[in-house]
Nucleic acid binder design. Structure first.
Lengths: 150, 150
DNA sequence: TGATGTTAAATGTATATACACGTATTAGTG
DNA sequence: CACTAATACGTGTATATACATTTAACATCA
């Protein structure tokens, strides 16, 4: 793959900030494509996978749709319809919340936990094959990304 | 915004690689949202904006649709329809290529160049407001992103 | 209490995307 | 030249996304 300039056949960027914007968009596409390759046989989109992991992290404590929305990676996407999709595949369960009937409690099912389990080994390999960085570099990059957002 | 863990209300990640995947997805969403805020009044999507910049970089030399496709940030999107949209807004021009009638030459119009010019000042501010990093950190991050992809 | 406002979730809708497939043109080969 | 393969671009289609609007339930306070 090499440098970004090579990958998208651009001679040079006006300044490093401009390059960073393009670089993040491009690297995102690179990672999502790779992730899709793993998730597709399991019929999951990246955000669906993410929501399942959020629910697993709850350790059986129900979560509302709006709480899922808050924690989703893409703030603009639609948690309600996404949960619908997961429910159709029987990976999550919905329960009307007794204390507030506007809310809906969402729980991951056994089948949902199983699919995450089946995915685990593939995702481990993903890290090694797709992210060509040492652990120190990964930590550094995480710090830079956190700082970037202010 | 602070750390990723805080932003998506996750206690901790299994390992830094896992965090990096999530961090890139999340930061991407953060940047695209901000970029959209600038581009929306101009009725452009981020990838449309990118294609206009590719065409401007050609300095009047026509480019084919497949060359645009190769240089797009999202490799899976559809250059043909995207060019259609830009043509409908009169920001690009299409010409049948005389030497190979399969190909279509694409050129940016005066109106397209003008819109990029109008956008320029907004995008300058974008860098300062949205990317909270020093120039040294930006350069470091670019190098890490280039290395990440191998 | 009831009028008003606020929140949670669902829905409507236009557009974007992923990916397979179709069609026309050129290249290559016996 | 005829035949096959490769290429460039367009189109079809199911799904995803962005964003506005709607509906129902709850909260507040005169």
């Amino acid at each position: 793959m090499g440098s970004l300039e090579e990958a998208i056949k651009q001679k040079e960027f006006k300044d490093p900030y401009n390059k960073l914007v393009v670089n993040l968009l491009f690297t995102h596409s690179y990672m999502v494509s790779a992730q899709n390759g793993i998730l597709k046989p399991f019929d999951l989109s990246p955000e669906q996978y993410n929501v399942l992991r959020i629910l697993r992290g709850q350790n059986g404590v129900p979560t509302t749709v709006s709480s899922i929305q808050d924690r989703m990676l893409n703030k603009m996407s639609n948690a309600s319809r996404l949960v619908d999709k997961l429910k159709a595949k029987e990976l999550v369960e919905r329960r009307e919340c007794p204390s507030d009937r506007r809310q809906v409690d969402i729980l991951i099912t056994e089948k949902g936990l199983q699919i995450l389990n089946d995915l685990h080994i593939h995702m481990e390999g993903f890290n090694n094959q797709v992210i060509n960085l040492s652990e120190e570099e990964v930590i550094l990059m995480n710090n830079l990304l956190d700082k970037l957002r202010g």
